[in-house]
Amino acid sequence: MEQLLMGSFLSAMATGVGALPILFFRTVTHRWRDILLAFTAGIMVAAATFSLIPQAMSNAPFMIVCLGVLTGTLFLTVLESVIPHIDLEHTRVNIAMDSQALLILMAITLHNIPEGLSVGVSYSSEQPELGGLIAFAIGLQNAPEGFLVALFLINQKVSRLKAFFLATMTGAVEIASAICGYYLTAVVKGLVPYGLAFAAGAMLFIVYKELIPESHGDGHARSATFSFILGLLVMIGLVQFFG
């Protein structure tokens, strides 16, 4: 339980770490943003395909794994249809703070719930090191997200300190959802393989639907591609080392 709390806390607070530079400067180049997003995508793909799915398949039939992956994908699809997707980089900066910024914060917060579930489910598996790896992967994804949220809030005339605080709090929901995921699968052990597959589906949806398109949208596709491969290899190395 202590490992779960520590891992989920560090993963969630990575959002605040990503937002921290906003206290010192207001912009980041598209090139470095795309490289960071692509590196994160590689990390998450490797975590899903070399950790979550193999662990699920070692404890459940193939059809259960398929069902879990598809359920995770469908869950994120429904969530996206309920909460409108907002491109933080291309949103107008002269709109009302109390409506648009609130929608941004709500969308990002809800988006973090399945990520926290992924961490909690991973810690409840038979491989305790798996939880740390997934928390690490989710944390890397949270860092650029925190920066973009904080940057948007500053463009909405929010003070730097308040923008940093609000961006950090969007990740805090992951701690609660990680605890829920852990206890749910710990009590009902048969849900662990399904939960791992669900987490893999959710992560792959985020990568293909969000991270890869955003990292290729500003003319830096080649740099992003190499960064993606590097992230993939780094995570595979971590899986081999800790596995």
Rank of each mutant, 00 (worst) to 15 (best):
G217I: 01
A19E: 13
L232S: 04
F9M: 09
A221N: 03
M169P: 10
N59L: 08
F24S: 07
A14G: 04
L67K: 02
P61T: 10
A60W: 11
L204Q: 06
I179F: 07
I113Y: 07
L88S: 02
G116V: 06
P84H: 01
Q127C: 03
A150C: 08
L140I: 09
G201R: 09
M203G: 14
G42N: 07
M63A: 10
A176R: 00
I236F: 10
T225L: 12
A96G: 12
A41F: 05
I206F: 02
V188R: 08
Q156C: 08
C66G: 11
F205D: 09
A176T: 07
D218G: 02
A135T: 04
V45K: 00
S99L: 01
L191H: 08
F228C: 07
E214Q: 06
E80G: 06
G7F: 08
M97P: 04
I175K: 00
H90K: 15
G219T: 02
L110K: 00
G243R: 15
Q141M: 06
M106P: 00
D87A: 10
A101Q: 04
V149L: 10
T15N: 04
F24Y: 13
S125M: 01
S227C: 07
M44T: 14
V192E: 02
M97F: 10
G131S: 10
V188M: 13
L36G: 02
M44Y: 04
L20M: 11
G217T: 03
T109E: 03
L88P: 00
T15S: 11
G201I: 04
A107D: 02
L161K: 08
I95A: 04
R33H: 09
S122C: 06
A46R: 03
G190P: 01
F198G: 03
F165I: 14
P193H: 04
T168V: 10
L37D: 09
V82K: 12
A47Y: 04
G217H: 02
F226P: 05
L76C: 07
G68Y: 08
A172D: 05
T168K: 00
I212C: 12
L238F: 12
G139R: 02
F165Y: 12
T73W: 14
Q100N: 12
A172G: 13
L238R: 10
G116F: 07
Q240G: 06
C66V: 13
L130V: 06
L232R: 05
S124Y: 02
I138V: 12
Q141Y: 01
V69T: 08
G42S: 05
G68K: 05
L230I: 13
T185S: 07
V17H: 03
L166H: 02
V173C: 00
D87N: 13
M44I: 15
M203S: 12
N112H: 09
N59V: 04
L211D: 01
F226L: 13
F205L: 10
E129M: 15
S124E: 06
L153K: 15
W32K: 12
P54T: 11
T225N: 10
P144L: 00
T71V: 11
